[in-house]
């Protein structure tokens, strides 16, 4: 669903929760008069299960869209090997091949991106513009952070990941 320029995506988990609670509500309202009398609150509440994730996705994606040009201007292109803990906070551009994709179903995808010098985790806290799959050659824009904020190996907090043509 598109709101303005932002393509809002709801995760499959949010949809599944909505479907499960819809079934429960329908079943409960068939058997219980008490539930039927509360439908005026329950139905909007049910839709909030979809609206809230959509609103959050819209807000995060619009924020990322605003950040993208800033990152494009500031980012330094680096090889994966050069990313280290001393670079925490730096904005980088990495080009590589996607080796693994995790948690895409949660709209919080995490990619393992590799170039000839090594591999690095790329975490994204919203859904990406493009559907990125394993073996896609991508350009990542993001900030170097620690995996667990204060500790852990350096990873890239991704603001933009886009497919680029293979040379």
């Amino acid at each position: 669903m598109k709101i303005g320029n932002i393509d809002v995506k709801v995760s499959i988990v949010a949809i599944a929760v909505f479907v499960v609670f819809t079934i429960l509500l329908v079943a409960a309202s068939v058997y219980s008069m008490d539930v039927r009398s509360q439908l005026i609150w329950l139905v909007p509440g049910l839709f909030m299960l979809l609206v809230i994730p959509m609103a959050l996705n819209y807000m995060s994606r619009s924020q990322y869209a605003e950040l993208k040009p800033i990152y494009e201007a500031e980012a330094k292109t680096v090889r994966v090997k050069l990313i280290n803990e001393n670079m925490v906070g730096k904005i980088v551009r990495v080009e590589g091949v996607v080796e693994r994709v995790y948690f895409q179903f949660l709209n919080r995808p995490q990619y393992l991106v590799a170039d000839r010098s090594g591999e690095i985790s790329v975490k994204m806290f919203t859904s990406p513009d493009e559907d990125v799959k394993v073996n896609d050659v991508v350009e990542v824009l993001g900030q170097v952070i620690r995996r667990y904020i204060v500790t852990g190996d350096p990873v890239v907090n991704c603001v933009s990941i886009r497919k680029i043509k293979k040379e």
């Binding site: 090997k81 280290n84 803990e85 001393n86 000839r116 010098s117 090594g118």
Partner: peptide
């Protein structure tokens, strides 16, 4: 020493 991990990475990495 604060950059030792980076130096090690340069030395043993590809």
């Amino acid at each position: 020493l604060t950059c030792q991990a980076f130096a090690q990475k340069l030395l043993i990495g590809k």
